[in-house]
Design a protein around this nucleic acid. Sequence first.
DNA 1: CGCCCATTTGAAAATAATCAATGGAAGTGG
DNA 2: CCACTTCCATTGATTATTTTCAAATGGGCG
Lengths: 229, 229
Amino acid sequence: MPPVAALHRHHPAVSPIAVTFRPAPIDGIAMLDRIGTVVTIGREEPLFYEGDGAECYYKVVKGVMRGCTLLADGRRHIGDFFLAGDFIGLDADKTYPFTVEGVTDATLIRYSRRKVDALAAQEPQITKCLVGLMRNGLSSARQRMALLGHMTAMERIASFLLDLADRGDNARVALPMTRTDIGDYLGLTMETVSRAFCQLKSEHVIQQQGVHEVAITDRSALEELTKAA
Amino acid sequence: MPPVAALHRHHPAVSPIAVTFRPAPIDGIAMLDRIGTVVTIGREEPLFYEGDGAECYYKVVKGVMRGCTLLADGRRHIGDFFLAGDFIGLDADKTYPFTVEGVTDATLIRYSRRKVDALAAQEPQITKCLVGLMRNGLSSARQRMALLGHMTAMERIASFLLDLADRGDNARVALPMTRTDIGDYLGLTMETVSRAFCQLKSEHVIQQQGVHEVAITDRSALEELTKAA
DNA sequence: CGCCCATTTGAAAATAATCAATGGAAGTGG
DNA sequence: CCACTTCCATTGATTATTTTCAAATGGGCG
């Protein structure tokens, strides 16, 4: 149930307070898009590195990105997968706290933070909107902590699949990332991830169309597995 | 290294933009305090429950609070310990996403959200301040995910102790919460927590003055143990 | 002073990690 | 277009860590 990616979900349209007359109420994100520019990133290509000056926000339009940090002992932690609609960088202070790379080829919109701040100063809707996105990020972070702290391998995988299912073609789930990526995201090894998938397959809960796509054939069974959270 | 509690740290004084003349620049939090009221909570007493309408923010003045959720299988997850200076409820949308209870007797300041919003509409500093606090929350949530996903029991305990040490009397650490609380916070069982403490004690890394206070005698050893993150 | 609850300690069981080898798919270069 | 190479995924066996179950200890509070 914990949403896969943090800073997304255009939350239920902000109530349009008509301070000045305007042809139609404009959503905060729509306003942002006016100052955005398009960026494309290739598979395994970095968008920015941990420690880089955080000068921009990004929104994923197409493809999947991952945010990861290298731990002191060489292990890699994936903090988030960013799917279409997700925002990247809202939580950065002066510098980005993690590296972001393309899991697939991807298209993003880049928003200069300077410009966003300027716009936000005029349009309180923008700020409201960004704060809402951050709230969502905190909410999903909280759920993921419960997952990482208290769930078994199978429960984590089940949650992960349901999250992805809820964000796309319910039932047909794309898994563009590697098993290692999934492991680094869920706090498991690649082998454990693989075994969990195989078990779900053998129990006819999912079907696999190649390694990077699964069909959920028994959603309720998956939901049962996440009952721990 | 992951900060124990999320929404705190009066961040480096916001640059005072003198829009109108004012005797002295007033920090966002100081402005907030004017509309706050004091609340006291006893040990094991709830401040609010998960699902309650989120009508207030709180700041801890004295004592320790915990934010917890009950998982579907009966297990309990502690999302955060809130220490003096920490804010509670900033991440709530319509309702509080977790129950908050006193670990010790505690004193808090309650801020009506309605009033805060009204004040924030006039004073952009307030919003900046709140956004900064949320950013800190996201930052610590991220670090805690890495901890829960990738660290061993001993590494988690070491991180936890260092976090607490960094927030108080460096070296003399108060542990008002039970071993079970710590376990529910770190994703471990009470027994594992106890064993880790005992091992640290036997290795002369810490000393115990009763169950609820430890003295760090070898900080660098603790830091070494967290090298995984 | 005695009871109760949290903590500590011990032993057994379960879960996931690690080590190791095989299988397969995608991409490269001839 | 095919063969080769490389990387990723799967599978198996073993090991390590943590949980679970159980019992004993000890401190704090009435």
